[in-house]
Amino acid sequence: METLLATLHVAGWAIYAGGAVTMEWVLRYAQRTMPPSQTAVVCKHAGSRYRWFALAALVVTGVTGLLLLLTLNDGDLAGRFSSPELSLHDPYGRTVVLLGVAWLILLAVLSSMAFWLHPAQARRSKPEMSKEEIQAERERVGRAIKRMEWALRTELVVSLLAVGLGASLHAGGLF
């Protein structure tokens, strides 16, 4: 059971962090060679699928991480490198708390992308709008695109840091 939970945990964060790296490193690179109109279409389709994959992966990571934490016992910890303790007085406990904080930040960033920035990016001006309204709509979409870029970079950095925190648990924690 613990092996299955650990596998789901690994698959969850692998899909999440690896997906973020791939979107940045592969999709952005391919976008540069595409006409702007098609870039928008590809972004819309890739973004609408990616947000659900990323959200599902993040939820699986959080739930399995919590279950794995609940199955931890002193005997298990004592057999590990540097014999850590699940307490705030020990780097292991503090690192676990930091991982929880990183997970919450990622959930907030991803939720903002999925439910606010992505729909805002997809908004289009309507024929009955006045010139000022169309201009205002374009500016809103422009702001949403900029915020989305910030959100994607924040997500990438936090997810890579979270993997580092997780990796440090093998050695008894980082802080």
Binding site: A14, I15, G19, V26, F53
Partner: peptide, 18 residues
Amino acid sequence: DIAIAVYIGGAVAMEFVL
């Protein structure tokens, strides 16, 4: 861990997103 994440997550993103 990062290398595994990039391999698995990259394959998923290529197959099911891109």
